[in-house]
Design a protein around this nucleic acid. Structure first.
Length: 421
DNA sequence: AATTGGGACAACCGCCGATTG
DNA sequence: ACAATCGGCGGTTGTCCCAAT
C-alpha cells in the first residue's frame, strides 16, 4: 500500500515563493515555532504543501542562514567532507554553519563537480581527459559562446588574485574546443585534503568503534609531485591502520589502489575503503562489474595476477564481515555506487576522488605533460569513439589490468555505458 | 534587437526511517 | 504487529538570467 501524499495537492500553489508568502510563513513560524509542517500551511493560510513550507523555511527564511557566495574556506571544507561523506549533503551542511544542504548540493553540482570533471584523469599516465568533441562526434555546439562557468570563474577569481591565493584558479588561454584541466586543481586538492582533513575524517568515521578500520584518504593520483591529498608520500605511508591491539597493519597503498600484491589484496582494502568513508575507487567499480554470478569476485588486479576471491570465504574468514558486506550493499544500493547504468553522471558518485581517479597506482610519479595532453589526444579510439584508455595497456605493462578479454566485449560495452551515460 | 544555449539555483518529487496511535 | 503519518534526505526538474551569436 502506497503512502498517502504529504498533503492535498489540489489547489496548492507551486513554483517560486512570493515575498508575501515568505512573510506569512516567517511570521507564522516566529509565532508558533517550527514543526507540524503538515498542518502549517493550513494554519498559516498558505496554499502550499507542508514540505514546501519546510523547505522554504530551512533553505531561505531561517535567520541563521549565511548569505553570499561560498568562500574559499567553505569550498575547501565541502571538498574535504564530500571526499569523506559522499553525497550526504545534510551531513556536509552540518559542518558549514549557515549553509543548507540544498545550497551545498547545488554548489557542488554547478561548481565543484565541474572542476573535478575537468580534472578527470583517465589513466595511469596521469593524463587528464581531453575530449576532442569534433573527433568524438558529440556535443556539437552551435554558438561559440564561452563556457559561462569559465567566464564567471575568471571574473570572480581575478579579483582575488591580489592576495596570491587564488591566482591558481584563473584559467588562461583555454581553447574553446577542449576540456582542458585546470592547472590549479592539483594544488587545490593538495591544499584542501590536508592532514587536517584526515583528522576530521577520523572523527567522522561512522564506525568509530571499529579500531580495525582506517578512514582511507585517497591520494589524488593527479599530483605530480607525489604529494597527494595527504600531503607528502611520507605522510601517506604513515597512515596505516591500527588493529585493536594497537599493532600496525600494513596495507601499503591498497586503500588507495590495489597494488597487485597478493598479500595486500587479501586485505581487501578497497572494500574497507568503501564502508569507511563511503568511497569507492575505480577498482571498486570494476570489481563490482566483474562480480561473477557464482559470487566469486574476479579481481584482475593490475594485470598479471588474477585473483579470485570467494565472497563467502572472505566473510567467513572475517576479512569482510557480514555487516561490512551489508554496508557495502547499502552504499551500493543507496546510489553511492551503482553498477548499472543509472549511476550515470559522475557527479553522482560518492566521492570526487573515488569515481575516476583511483585506478592508478599512486606510487607513480605523476607527470603532467600539458603539451602532450593537448597534442596527444589519444584517449578516444577513433574507430569506435571509445576511450581507448579503458582497456589499453599502460606503457609499463601494468595497464593490462584494464585490458579485458575479447570475450568480455559485452562487459566492455556495459562498462562504457555505465561510465558515460 | 532577437535568438539561442547554457549556467545557476530554487523548488519539487519520491523514497526512507522514525514515530505514533 | 501493523498501518498511518511525519520529517528529512538526495536526486531531479523547471525557471530565470545572461552572454554569445
Amino acid at each position: 500500500m502506497g503512502r498517502a501524499p504529504c498533503c492535498e495537492k489540489v489547489g496548492l500553489k507551486k513554483g517560486r515563493w512570493t515575498t508575501e508568502e515568505d512573510e506569512i510563513l516567517t511570521k507564522y513560524i516566529q509565532a508558533n515555532g517550527e514543526g507540524s509542517w503538515r498542518s502549517l500551511p493550513k494554519n498559516a493560510g498558505l496554499l502550499r504543501c507542508g514540505k514546501s513550507c519546510r523547505l522554504r523555511w530551512i533553505n531561505y527564511l531561517r535567520a541563521d542562514l549565511k548569505r553570499g557566495n561560498i568562500t574559499a574556506e567553505e569550498e575547501e571544507l565541502i571538498i574535504n567532507l564530500h571526499a569523506t561523506l559522499g553525497n550526504r549533503w545534510s551531513l556536509i551542511a552540518s559542518h558549514l554553519p549557515g549553509r543548507t544542504d540544498n545550497e551545498i548540493k547545488n554548489y557542488w553540482n554547478s561548481h565543484l563537480s565541474r572542476k573535478i570533471h575537468s580534472f578527470r584523469r583517465p589513466s595511469c599516465q596521469s593524463l587528464p581527459v581531453i575530449l576532442d568533441m569534433t573527433k568524438a562526434g558529440i556535443a556539437k555546439r552551435k554558438g561559440g559562446r564561452t563556457n559561462r562557468w569559465e567566464m564567471k570563474k575568471t571574473k570572480s577569481y581575478s579579483t582575488q588574485e591580489d592576495d596570491g591565493s587564488s591566482s591558481q584558479k584563473t584559467v588562461e588561454n583555454v581553447s574553446v574546443n577542449e576540456v582542458v584541466p585546470l592547472p590549479s586543481t592539483p594544488i587545490l586538492e593538495k591544499e584542501t585534503l590536508s592532514t587536517t582533513a584526515i583528522e576530521d575524517r577520523m572523527v567522522l568515521d561512522p564506525y568509530g568503534e571499529d579500531k580495525e578500520r582506517m578512514i582511507p584518504v585517497r591520494t589524488s593520483p593527479c599530483q605530480d609531485t607525489g604529494e597527494g591529498m595527504l600531503g607528502s608520500s611520507e605522510e601517506r605511508e604513515r597512515l596505516v591502520p591500527m588493529s585493536s591491539s594497537g599493532e600496525e597493519r600494513t596495507i601499503e597503498n591498497s586503500m588507495l589502489c590495489p597494488s597487485g600484491n597478493a598479500e595486500t589484496e587479501t586485505d581487501i582494502a578497497p572494500f574497507e575503503s568503501i564502508e569507511s568513508g563511503g568511497m569507492l575507487c575505480f577498482n571498486d567499480i570494476m570489481d563490482n562489474e566483474l562480480l561473477e554470478p557464482n559470487g566469486d569476485l574476479t579481481l584482475s588486479e593490475w594485470g598479471e595476477n588474477k585473483v579470485t576471491v570467494n565472497v563467502e570465504e572472505r566473510e567467513n574468514s572475517g576479512i569482510l564481515s557480514p555487516n561490512k558486506t551489508a554496508a557495502n550493499n547499502e552504499e551500493i544500493e543507496s546510489g553511492n555506487l551503482s553498477s548499472n547504468v543509472d549511476c550515470g553522471d559522475l557527479n553522482s558518485c560518492s566521492s570526487i576522488t573515488s569515481c575516476f581517479v583511483d585506478e592508478c597506482n599512486i606510487d607513480n610519479n605523476l607527470d603532467w605533460d600539458w603539451e602532450r595532453v593537448v597534442q596527444g589526444n589519444e584517449l578516444w579510439d577513433e574507430k569506435e569513439y571509445m576511450p581507448s584508455w579503458l582497456w589499453e595497456s599502460d606503457d609499463d605493462g601494468k595497464g593490462e589490468r584494464h585490458k579485458l578479454e575479447d570475450k568480455d566485449f559485452k562487459r566492455q560495452n556495459s562498462l562504457v555505458a555505465w561510465l558515460f551515460y
